[in-house]
Simulated scan of single mutants.
Amino acid sequence: MIMNEKIKASEVLLTGVNGEDLGIMSTKEALKIAKELQVDLVCQSLASSPPPCQLVSRTDFKQQVIKESAKNRKVEKGPKLKEIRLSAYIEDHDYDTKKGQAERILTSGDAVQLTVRLEKKESQEAKKLVEQLIRELTHCGKQDKGIQVSGKQVIAVMLPH
């Protein structure tokens, strides 16, 4: 990111602190305005002529850079798989809590594995519970594969949209 006196162009296309268009002006004049407002002049791209620049407060700029780097790291790593465990005979309030957790995880960009541990002969109830959860979570995610029913647990994986 090129800032302040490091901008070598003679003219810049300036955007104000709040996003207002200030037009094309000399770099010296843009730097003068930046010093008056106690902000930085940041060049956004060198691809065009005159280069687009923006007046940005230093704290906002640092926060923006931190957010972008965190977002890039998350994209590089890919989505995490987070497990939510349930029982086949779950109370309504607990069900709502687990559903809310799954929604939060899916909207943050991570995948959810819904696991229902089985005790006796409750595989049908567990499968119905998982199917109901998947139906209610379709607005924020999609099912990866089918519902897997093994001897001791029922598992379904949901991916974010």
Rank of each mutant, 00 (worst) to 15 (best):
Q132E: 10
N72A: 12
I33W: 04
Q124I: 13
K145D: 09
S45I: 05
T138R: 15
S123W: 07
K99S: 03
V149R: 00
V65I: 15
A88L: 03
A111M: 01
C53Y: 05
Q143Y: 08
K77Y: 00
K98G: 07
V112T: 03
C43S: 15
D144N: 07
L133N: 09
Q148N: 12
S69N: 15
A88N: 05
V56I: 11
N72C: 01
G100Y: 05
Q63I: 05
K142R: 14
C43N: 09
E122H: 06
G109H: 08
A34L: 03
A156Q: 10
G78P: 00
K71E: 15
L46I: 14
R135G: 13
G100Q: 06
A111K: 10
S45H: 10
E36S: 11
V112Q: 01
E91R: 10
S49G: 02
H93P: 02
V56R: 12
E83F: 10
K32W: 02
R73F: 00
Y95D: 11
Q63T: 11
I147Y: 04
I90V: 05
Q132D: 14
Y89Q: 12
R135K: 14
H93M: 13
C43L: 15
K74F: 02
S69R: 15
E125P: 09
I33R: 12
T115V: 14
